[in-house]
Design a protein around this nucleic acid. Structure first.
Lengths: 207, 207
DNA sequence: GTCATCATGTAAGCCGTTACATGATTGC
DNA sequence: GCAATCATGTAACGGCTTACATGATGAC
């Protein structure tokens, strides 16, 4: 789960751990709400596995708009100066390798049942899938949710107090909402899939 | 999280581990989707801590309607026969103790920020709280969600593809829905709290 | 010179899982 | 006898967290 998120961000360009965490948060929100104690070991692991490699002379891709904090920008300038000839302990910039790209796609494509989090994360990265995989992902999830929904206790459970009842209903409504959303996505995917299916791997950000 | 769920079920009467798992599932659904490898150690831990004790001669409370599977009923009869004089390795029936009841209330009342799951679980058990605690729980959660919502990335994130965009929107709508739900509950709680606040600890199941 | 921020890493622990081991009871 | 179900328990492992340790750099 964390690995696929990291690789997904690294598809946009080389980056270092500290920054990756911010990017994960801004791109996936709570889906990958992850601490440094997870990130750094994960990067080491990916490097040992050959999915990423450290870049020696290169600076990471800049965040598109300089709308951020002044301190951040100044820090970046410093870092850039420093990174040009990084002799000391400093940033460790990682780049995804061809093997890593393959691993990334395999992870996106794999068909084991996923929970809400991992599904949403993968759907967030659905632009890297081919249309058939994408549709399969959506339909698989739809099936899981329908199954789950059917296993929910009926409304007429005896002896349920109003609080438990309200929670159960809220959860059920949430599942229904998720299913309806998936139906819309599947619909869109189907009508769009009939047309040209040629815009995978869209252009890098135009900034 | 598991402990409070177990104690919550044991408030309805003594029960053994195997059955507790089913009860957890039927009462809390996916909120406590827990395996035996968690349940048994948890019960041992609670017993060591004095929150529950094993009942020697007593059978667990029966499940209200005999609508279940025939095999289940037959098994229960067997078990009942057996449990009357349990000399061999058989069921281990736990009962909540006064200390456990105290611990249970403390867990329900504690004010550390909780995630979606633990909040919903506690709200499911809200009938055991006094009205003020209940209201505080709802308002605290509402605050957390509002905070979380405000930290969500804006809709106009540049370079977001439609999939990531759709996921982000769906998540945001979900948070809004949760907040609206909480607002309704808070409203109900307030108007109800003005009236008599006397129906805590409702009667045991009438079956 | 000290504080905040950036930056990387390790270690311990929490909370759950799956897999495995054991055993009683009953139906067939 | 054998399979299925009920019933309890242990061991190993997974993925994450917090806490801690280290260090560079520039602001004030």
């Amino acid at each position: 789960m964390l690995d696929v998120a990291l690789l997904g961000v690294l598809e946009d360009g080389p980056q270092h751990g500290y920054e990756l965490r911010k990017l994960l948060k801004s791109r996936f929100g709570n889906l990958t709400n992850v601490s440094f104690g997870s990130i750094y070991p994960a990067l080491s692991r990916l490097e040992r596995g050959g999915a990423v490699e450290t870049v020696e002379g290169a600076a990471p891709v800049a965040l598109s708009p300089p709308t951020g904090s002044l301190t951040g920008e100044r820090a970046a300038m410093r870092a850039r100066r420093r990174t040009g000839t990084r002799g000391r302990r400093s940033r460790k910039v990682y780049r995804i390798t061809p093997a890593g790209r393959q691993l990334f796609l395999a992870m996106l494509t794999d068909t084991s049942p996923d929970d809400a989090r991992s599904f949403l994360l993968r759907l967030s990265l659905a632009r890297y899938m081919d249309p058939a995989t994408r549709l399969a992902l959506l339909e698989r999830r739809r099936g899981q949710l329908a199954q789950h929904r059917s296993e929910l206790p009926a409304d007429d459970e005896p002896g349920r107090d109003p609080y438990a009842q309200s929670v159960a209903e809220h959860i059920k409504d949430g599942v229904d909402r998720d299913i309806a959303w998936l139906d819309r996505l599947i619909e869109a995917e189907r009508s769009l899939g009939g047309a040209a299916g040629s815009d995978r791997r869209p252009s890098r950000r135009s900034a």
